[in-house]
C-alpha cells in the first residue's frame, strides 16, 4: 500500500510539473495564435469583398454552413453576403469563404484551411481555379458535376475530382442558403 502511494505520488509530481509548464507555454502562445487566426480571416475577407462594408458574423446551425456576414453599402443597404462554408474534400474539411450577391450569384470565393494533396487538390487555392464557379448560382446553376463544366475546366479538375465536388457542393449549399434567406 505504501508503495502504491509512493509510486502514484511520484507520477502525480511529474504530471503536475508538466501541466504547469504547458500552462505557461499556452499563456505565451495563445494570444499569438488568436492573432494569426484573426489576420487570416481578415485577409480572406479582403480578398472576396471588393466593395461594401462587412458586418458582424451571424452564426448558423446548418450542414456545411458555419455562418455569414452581411455586406452593406454606404446607405446600410445589403448588397451581398459572405458565407463561411465547410466542404468535404479528399483530406477532410475544407474551409471556404464565399461572397454571394443577394440573388445567390457567387461573386468571389477563396479556399482557406484545407488538407488537400499538394499538386492536385491544393491547386484550388489558386484564384484562377475558382473562375469556373464565379457568376454561377442564382440564374445559372453552380456546376457540381464534371459534365457541367467546359472541356478545359473539366480537364483542370481531373485528378482532384473529390476536391472539386466538395467545393462545388459547398458553394451550392451556400447559394441555396442565401436564396432562402432573401425569401424570408
Amino acid at each position: 500500500m505504501k508503495d502504491i502511494i509512493k509510486i502514484g505520488g511520484k507520477l502525480a509530481i511529474i504530471c503536475a510539473t508538466a501541466a504547469i509548464a504547458l500552462g505557461l507555454v499556452n499563456a505565451i502562445t495563445e494570444p499569438v495564435i488568436e492573432e494569426v487566426k484573426k489576420r487570416r480571416l481578415e485577409e480572406a475577407l479582403a480578398r472576396v469583398v471588393k466593395e461594401g462594408q462587412v458586418e458582424e458574423i451571424r452564426t448558423v446551425e446548418r450542414d456545411q454552413i458555419e455562418g455569414y456576414y452581411p455586406v452593406t453599402d454606404s446607405e446600410a443597404e445589403i448588397i451581398g453576403y459572405v458565407v463561411k462554408l465547410i466542404g468535404l474534400g479528399y483530406g477532410g474539411d475544407m474551409h471556404l469563404l464565399a461572397n454571394y450577391a443577394p440573388d445567390g450569384t457567387l461573386k468571389d470565393v477563396v479556399l482557406m484551411e484545407n488538407k488537400e494533396t499538394p499538386g492536385l487538390g491544393k491547386k484550388a487555392e489558386n484564384p484562377q481555379y475558382m473562375e469556373m464557379f464565379i457568376k454561377a448560382g442564382g440564374g445559372r446553376e453552380i456546376p457540381t458535376r464534371k459534365d457541367m463544366l467546359s472541356r478545359e475546366d473539366a480537364d483542370s479538375v481531373t485528378g482532384a475530382t473529390i476536391t472539386f465536388m466538395g467545393i462545388a457542393n459547398a458553394l451550392k449549399a451556400g447559394s441555396d442558403f442565401i436564396m432562402e434567406l432573401e425569401r424570408e
Binding site: 507520477l11 508538466a18 509548464a21 504547458l22 507555454v25 499556452n26 502562445t29 494569426v36
Partner: peptide, 17 residues
C-alpha cells in the same frame, strides 16, 4: 507524460509562429 508535454509545446509554437 514527458513526451506529450514536449509535443504540445512544439504544436503550440508551430501554430503561433
Amino acid at each position: 507524460v514527458i513526451i506529450a508535454s514536449f509535443v504540445t509545446v512544439v504544436d503550440l509554437l508551430m501554430k503561433a509562429y
